[in-house]
Design a protein around this nucleic acid. Structure first.
Lengths: 216, 216
DNA sequence: AGGCTTGCACGTACGGCGTACGTGCGTCAA
DNA sequence: TTGACGCACGTACGCCGTACGTGCAAGCCT
């Protein structure tokens, strides 16, 4: 029974699978090896160490983003689509999201979305300085949104799944939080994300566009 | 020589100190105990487990934010000040920032900034729905910015400290990244953060303000 | 005063972790 | 045929979090 030979790709895939099934805390070299039915140390023939393996996971997830870019569309539509495509990470690989946004990647996988975004912004007439600034702002917003969505940064649902109970939130100390508790404890991620994206697009659309070029 | 008695506060302080000196990876119960000159298991008389200790660290850092709110100022100024105050975390406790934004806090420490922000937005005339939405957007942006600033999410400096060298970025695959390399590899965090904050403030300032109240 | 509870510092021990290192086997080049 | 090489694997070391038990000092009730 010749099993598929071990490879970096298979190891990374097993890691992603494990993370999505049991969470990032469940990841250990021993556990991955067990899932693959191999010895622990065999992994090290294909991956230098655990950290590099996790980088591989982040790259793999990142490179699975499906960008369907229509070069003829208005730039605002293209920006919107790219932002949403990036957010797909949180849906396709919710438990891996934290890994993706928390690792400094030096590979091409991380550069492709950047390239696309910059090209779109440049085609919209922004000069280099503004394109980079706007891109960084979008990335910050998207990363922050993803973290909230996958549950790491609080939605600011105070205690239970249900509405706030006054034992946990003192109404005299936190009148606003208390009054808005029903709104704070529920969250439509799709709507909230789009709300922010629209606001950002609208905001940068009115930026004064400087002369083209200016990358120097 | 009666040393200060052990306490949760002292343990948390030692943990923060250790994180800022050697990074979050260096944190272990054994190491903290050694720094405090006590036995490992003594810590567990004051802290239920490591996870709770890290929550304590996040709370402590969060509650050190200095909000200097001027209720008479224009609401745009107040929002700006609150955003900057929150960002102070990244300066005062850079290595702890990741912990602060990556932990779901159920304590009052996390609610105070929320309360202040909501109050400011409500006083600016936003109804409950919009105040919560805008707050969430700001939080996402700030969290994402902090992560970039403390070096976890990439600045998109491609390889070295210096400019991009063409070995690492294929100019034909990534023409924009390549052309904008000088801009991508340097980053004025203060200016970039303020750029985004101004844009966001400007964007929400033109939101149609609905009737007051509406928390229900 | 004497006994008892309680709080807290501490040591030992267990199971799990990442990984350095050595070993043995299959394949392929010379 | 033989040698080198690639790769799966076992063992072992030094970390980790923490369950559990022990002993001591302070405070309480009678």
């Amino acid at each position: 029974m010749p099993t598929e030979p071990l490879s970096r790709t298979r190891i990374v895939a097993a890691a992603i699978d494990l993370i999505e099934r049991e969470g990032a805390d469940a990841v250990s070299m021993r556990r991955i090896a067990a899932d693959l039915g191999v010895g622990v140390m065999s992994l090290y023939n294909h991956v230098p160490n655990k950290d590099a393996l996790l980088n591989g996971v982040a790259e793999a997830v990142l490179s699975q983003i499906e960008f369907t870019d229509d070069p003829d569309a208005h730039w605002t539509d293209r920006v919107r689509m790219q932002a949403r495509a990036f957010r797909q990470i949180a849906h396709g690989h919710p438990r891996s999201t934290m890994l993706v946004v928390s690792r400094q990647l030096h590979s091409n996988a991380g550069l492709l979305p950047v390239e696309r975004a910059l090209a779109t912004l440049r085609s919209a007439g922004f000069d280099g300085v503004d394109a980079v600034r706007v891109l960084r702002m979008f990335i910050a917003y998207i990363v922050g949104s993803l973290l909230r969505e996958v549950g790491v940064t609080p939605t600011f649902v105070p205690p239970r799944q249900h509405l706030v109970n006054p034992d946990d939130v003192d109404p005299t100390l936190f009148p606003e939080v208390n009054g808005l508790a029903p709104l704070l404890s529920s969250c439509d991620h799709d709507a909230d994300f789009d709300f922010g994206v629209e606001l950002l697009i609208q905001a940068i659309a009115v930026l004064p566009k400087r002369k083209r070029e200016g990358t120097r």
